[in-house]
Every structure is written in structure tokens, then in C-alpha cells.
Computed example of a mutant assay.
Amino acid sequence: MKIEQQIRRKYAHPNLTIHVKQGYVDESLDAFRINYEGTRREPINLRFDVLGSPEDDYSFVIYEVFRSAEALDEHRKTAHYWECVRRIDPIISAPRSKTFVWRCQTL
């Protein structure tokens, strides 16, 4: 089993990097907003951040925290998730990069 699969089963903190085509920043933020607003209403979601790169206006990181891996799977079945994917897919300039992270300790 891949380490990503092991982490995903234990922790549900996806970290997604998306690069959008030049001229599509507003459209991407509209799509992210749809997913953000829907996701934050889900009781299984604990956090949803859209972060922009200070070096690249067309690069975004989406950081989410879900109660469990199963909760993340449920989220991926929602209409707002799929609406965001539908809007983002045509305007990305590179494949999405996805990693899973977890809190090692509280400082």
C-alpha cells in the first residue's frame, strides 16, 4: 500500500495545488468559493482554506480538514464539489498536485 493511501486512511487533510491559466483567476476564485461555501456547511468539514502563492498569481493551494477519510469520501460526492471540478478543469494549466498532511504534534 502506498504511503499516501495509509495517511489518507488515518488522516483526512488533503492539500491540493492548482495552477490556473493566465486570465482565469477570477473564474477560479468563483469556483473555489462555491466549493468553500458548500464544504463549510458540511458537519464533517473542520477547515477549508484557499491560499494564493505570493510568487505566482496563478497558483493556489486548497487546504481542507475533514473528520475522517470516510468524511472526505462523502464530501467528494457533493454537488458543490463537482460544480467546482466542472468549472476548474477547463482552466487549469497543469495537472493538480495532491498530497495528504497531518498534524504531528501541537506546539
Rank of each mutant, 00 (worst) to 15 (best):
M1P: 07
K2C: 10
K2I: 05
E4P: 02
E4S: 15
E4T: 07
Q5E: 13
Q5G: 09
Q6S: 14
Q6L: 13
Q6F: 13
I7K: 03
R8Y: 10
Y11H: 14
A12H: 02
A12P: 02
A12K: 00
H13A: 06
P14C: 00
N15A: 07
N15K: 10
N15F: 14
L16C: 09
T17D: 00
T17G: 01
T17V: 09
I18Q: 00
I18M: 03
H19Q: 11
H19D: 04
K21A: 03
Q22H: 11
G23D: 01
Y24L: 08
Y24K: 15
Y24E: 10
V25D: 01
D26Y: 11
E27D: 08
E27G: 05
S28D: 02
L29A: 04
L29K: 05
D30F: 06
F32Y: 08
F32P: 04
F32I: 06
E37S: 01
G38D: 00
G38H: 04
T39A: 02
R40M: 15
R40D: 07
R41K: 15
R41P: 00
R41Y: 06
R41Q: 12
N45C: 14
R47T: 08
R47Q: 14
F48A: 02
F48T: 02
D49N: 09
V50G: 01
L51F: 10
G52P: 06
S53G: 08
P54Q: 07
P54E: 09
P54M: 13
D56A: 10
D56S: 06
D57E: 15
Y58N: 07
Y58W: 09
F60N: 01
V61C: 03
V61P: 02
Y63V: 01
Y63P: 02
Y63D: 03
V65E: 01
F66D: 00
F66R: 05
F66I: 11
R67K: 14
A69D: 05
E70G: 08
E70Q: 09
A71C: 08
A71V: 02
L72I: 03
D73V: 12
D73A: 13
E74H: 07
H75L: 06
H75A: 04
R76L: 12
R76H: 10
R76P: 00
R76M: 15
K77G: 01
T78Y: 05
A79H: 11
Y81M: 04
Y81E: 00
E83C: 06
R87Y: 10
I88R: 00
I88G: 04
D89C: 12
I91C: 06
I92G: 01
S93Y: 06
P95G: 11
R96P: 01
R96Q: 13
R96L: 14
R96G: 03
S97K: 09
S97Q: 09
K98T: 03
K98N: 05
K98E: 05
K98Q: 12
T99K: 15
F100H: 11
F100K: 10
V101E: 03
V101F: 06
W102C: 08
R103A: 14
R103T: 15
R103S: 14
C104N: 14
C104K: 15
Q105C: 14
Q105H: 12
Q105W: 13
